[in-house]
Amino acid sequence: MLELRLVQGSLLKKVLEAIKDLVTDANFDCSATGFSLQAMDSSHVALVALLLRSEGFEHYRCDRNISMGMNLNNMSKMLKCAGNDDIITIKGDDGSDTITFMFESPTQDKIADFEMKLMDIDSEHLGIPEAEYHAIVRMPSAEFSRICKDLSSIGDTVVISVTKEGVKFSTRGDIGAANIVLRQNTTVDKPEEATIIEMNEPVSLTFALRYMNSFTKATPLSSMVTISLSSELPVVVEYKIAEMGYVRFYLAPKIEE
């Protein structure tokens, strides 16, 4: 028996919009810790890890650990039927091959349930080791989105370099080249407008912009994004979900063969 009641249902709607273009089918895992997912894109270049902690739900009942295979496009179709202010409850019964999404309007005058078929998905979990990152950049998520979009009109790849001067995003294409440098800036009115650069060692890595642009679909989830870089490790692009958890995207770098 599974019953997860999320008062801020819009969070789940935003999570699906953030990941559905990257991953087609995925197993959602439910345990005492929370509602989570780990899945790779079809080319096994990017990985998404989602955690919605149990404490973030108004009601969280999960009698035993369960893994439920879902088609994210179908799940998104159903969640789009929930209003932005709706309370969403996810319900499942042991051994059932369906899951139910219940949507309640804030005034309780409309209650809908949508039943979705589950699917068997063979997926192996990857162990993500704790790593010391050479550099961690925390910046406004809208700024990061803007940079990825702007650079992708010039080139296909972005070189992200962190030095003591700041963080540089560079690309090159048939029509020319572009460099965008951000310096640390903590003298802003609001903390969500700050750019904070922690650097232990300079680092420079190359990534496909197509994936970076896909990650920025998570921008509505958080005003800030954290980009963690280490040489020869996948970059981590993290969007924190207020008081609940996170969506983390890992992207393998382009490397010299």
Partner: peptide
Amino acid sequence: LKSQARIARFFRYS
């Protein structure tokens, strides 16, 4: 020339 690495190069299946 750089080529695209895969995630499994860095993270092992658990």
